[in-house]
Amino acid sequence: MSKERSHDGDVDFIRALAELLRENDLTELEVIREYGDNDSLNVRVSRQQQIVQTMAMPAAPAAAAPAAAPAAAAPVAAANDDPASHPGTVTSPMVGTAYLAAEPGAAPFVTVGQTVNEGDTLLIIEAMKTMNQIPSPKSGKIKTIIVADGSPVDFGAPLVIIE
């Protein structure tokens, strides 16, 4: 009977973790609960859906902006082709907010069709009030800009495709 009560407690504990994950808008939470010798509970709760939503979000603001309407077709096509699997995809090295220009109203660092050299700044990611320049890992032509200006990005999220 005591094992059943501890199992019910574990279920309540897991539910509380899931609630904590949701309330704090976290993507993943992992906890090890020790009960004694050779008795523990390893719990990993994650929200895979949030990653998909983050990747899908940039297409909507780009389509809403009149100036970005021609470029909006390229991110939508890239989303269908799974941009993360493209060999030229540049991914986010951190969690933060992506900015395509140095300041509001300024020209973007790169545009679709532009040729870039290795080391050129592609965009900026603001993380903890620090602006981090994201350099091009290789020379090539910008095929697609996946993120929208001012959109949140997760670690590993596709940002730009360079061919």
Score class of each variant (00 low, 15 high):
Lys3Ser: 03
Lys3Gly: 00
Glu4His: 08
Arg5Pro: 00
Arg5Ile: 11
Ser6Phe: 05
Gly9Ile: 01
Val11Ile: 09
Val11Gln: 07
Phe13Lys: 03
Phe13Val: 01
Ile14Gln: 01
Arg15Leu: 07
Leu17Asp: 01
Leu17Asn: 03
Ala18Met: 12
Glu19Ala: 14
Leu21Ile: 02
Arg22Trp: 06
Arg22Cys: 02
Asn24Cys: 01
Thr27Gln: 09
Glu30Trp: 04
Val31Met: 09
Ile32Asp: 12
Arg33Val: 11
Tyr35Glu: 14
Tyr35Lys: 04
Tyr35His: 11
Gly36Arg: 00
Asn38Cys: 06
Asp39Tyr: 14
Asp39Leu: 15
Asn42Asp: 14
Val43Met: 08
Arg47Tyr: 12
Arg47Phe: 12
Gln48Ala: 13
Gln49Asn: 13
Gln50Glu: 15
Gln50Leu: 15
Ile51Thr: 11
Ile51Ala: 14
Ile51Gln: 13
Val52Ala: 15
Gln53Met: 13
Gln53Pro: 00
Ala56Val: 10
Ala56Met: 14
Pro58His: 11
Ala59Pro: 05
Ala59Ile: 14
Ala59Trp: 09
Ala60Thr: 10
Ala60Gln: 13
Ala60Ile: 14
Pro61Tyr: 10
Ala64His: 07
Ala71Gln: 14
Ala71Cys: 07
Ala74Pro: 00
Pro75Phe: 06
Ala77Leu: 14
Ala77Gln: 15
Ala78Gly: 06
Ala79Asp: 10
Ala79Phe: 15
Asn80His: 09
Asn80Lys: 10
Pro83Glu: 09
His86Leu: 12
His86Asp: 15
Pro87His: 02
Pro93Asn: 10
Met94Gln: 08
Met94Ala: 08
Val95Arg: 05
Val95Thr: 12
Thr97Val: 15
Tyr99Pro: 03
Leu100Asn: 02
Leu100Tyr: 03
Leu100Gln: 07
Ala101Thr: 09
Ala101Glu: 11
Ala102Cys: 01
Ala106His: 08
Ala107Phe: 04
Phe109Gly: 02
Phe109Asp: 00
Gly113His: 08
Gln114Thr: 04
Gly119Tyr: 01
Asp120Glu: 15
Asp120Ile: 05
Leu122His: 00
Leu123Lys: 02
Ile124Val: 15
Ile124His: 06
Glu126Met: 11
Lys129Glu: 13
Thr130Lys: 04
Met131Asn: 07
Met131Val: 09
Asn132Asp: 11
Ile134Cys: 00
Pro135Asp: 02
Pro137Val: 06
Pro137Tyr: 06
Ser139Trp: 07
Gly140Trp: 07
Thr144Ser: 09
Ile146Asp: 00
Ala148Tyr: 04
Ala148Ile: 04
Asp149Leu: 08
Asp149His: 08
Pro152Cys: 03
Val153Asn: 01
Phe155Asp: 11
Phe155Asn: 10
Leu159Glu: 01
Val160Gly: 01
Ile162Tyr: 01
